[in-house]
Simulated scan of single mutants.
Amino acid sequence: MDQLFPVHSDDGVEAPESCGYWCTLAYWELKHRVGRLFPVYDNSINVFAHHPQGSGLWLEQWFPTSPSNRDSTVRRTREKIGCGVTITRKLDGVWLHNRSKYPIFVDSPTMDPPNTRNLTVYKVFPGFSTKVFDFKVAQSYRELTDGPVDTNAFRISFYKGWGSNYSRQYITSCPCWLEVLLTT
C-alpha cells in the first residue's frame, strides 16, 4: 500500500491528509446505492465489471445482485463496463482513465468555474484520460461555495451520459454510476 500523504507540491499546495484511505467509492444503479462504501487506500484503483481485470473493485463480486432483480437497462449497461476505469491520485489531483470499449461520462466541481449551478458533463472516450479533480482549485472553491455543494466529490457514469444534451437529465437516471468521495 502506497503512503503518499501528506503531499506538498512545488507550488506549496497541500493535498488532503489521509487517515488511511484517500477516497471512498459509492456504486449506484439508477437512484439506488448498491452495497456499502468502498474505501480506497492505494494511489490507484481499477473499477471493472466482470472477472478480474487486474486488482481493484470488481463490481460483480463486490456488488452482486440477481439478474432477475436488476432492471434490464442496468444489466445491459453493466455488461458494457468491461475493463472499466482507473482512478489515480497524483500530486496535482485525481485522474481518470477509461479502460472500457465505450465512453464514460464525468462531472466534477473543479472542472467548471466556481458556483456553477449545473456542472458540465464531460465525455471521456475509450483509452483516454482526463484530470477530474484538481486539489488547488478545490481549495480555492471552499471559500467561494454558495449553497449545499460537495466540492470534494465527482461522479462517473458508465456508457450513458446525462444532462442537457441527453434524454437523462440527472445522473440518477443513469443505469450504472460511481460517486467518488474524496477525503479532505
Rank of each mutant, 00 (worst) to 15 (best):
P39W: 03
P39K: 07
V40S: 04
Y41I: 12
D42N: 06
S44Y: 00
S44R: 04
N46R: 10
N46Y: 01
N46T: 12
V47I: 15
V47Q: 08
V47D: 08
V47T: 07
V47K: 00
V47L: 02
F48P: 02
F48K: 00
F48Y: 11
H51A: 15
H51M: 13
P52L: 12
P52R: 09
P52A: 15
Q53D: 13
G54E: 06
G54V: 04
G54K: 12
G54Q: 06
G54S: 11
G56F: 06
G56M: 09
L59K: 01
E60W: 03
E60H: 09
E60P: 02
E60A: 14
E60Y: 04
W62K: 10
W62M: 12
W62R: 13
T65K: 15
P67C: 07
S68Y: 08
S68M: 10
D71C: 10
T73H: 09
R75K: 13
R75A: 13
R76N: 10
R76K: 11
R76Y: 10
T77D: 01
R78Y: 07
R78P: 01
E79M: 14
K80W: 01
K80D: 07
I81W: 02
I81P: 02
G84V: 03
V85D: 08
T86S: 04
I87F: 01
T88A: 12
T88M: 06
R89H: 13
K90W: 04
K90F: 02
L91I: 04
D92N: 14
D92R: 09
V94I: 15
W95K: 02
L96V: 01
H97T: 15
H97M: 07
N98W: 01
S100L: 04
K101N: 14
F105W: 13
F105C: 02
V106G: 02
D107R: 05
P109L: 00
T110F: 00
D112E: 15
P113G: 11
P113K: 05
P114W: 07
P114K: 09
T116V: 09
N118I: 13
N118T: 14
L119F: 09
V121F: 01
V121Y: 00
K123F: 11
V124F: 03
V124M: 07
P126Y: 02
P126W: 05
G127E: 03
G127V: 08
G127M: 12
S129L: 06
S129F: 05
T130N: 03
T130C: 08
T130E: 10
F133L: 03
F135N: 01
F135I: 04
F135K: 05
V137P: 00
V137Y: 03
V137R: 10
A138T: 05
Q139W: 10
Q139N: 10
Q139T: 10
S140P: 01
S140F: 07
S140Q: 15
E143R: 12
L144R: 11
L144Q: 14
T145H: 07
G147V: 04
G147T: 05
P148Q: 14
V149L: 15
V149K: 12
D150K: 11
T151G: 11
T151C: 11
A153C: 14
F154V: 10
R155M: 05
I156K: 02
Y159D: 14
Y159C: 06
K160H: 13
K160G: 05
G161N: 11
W162V: 00
G163W: 03
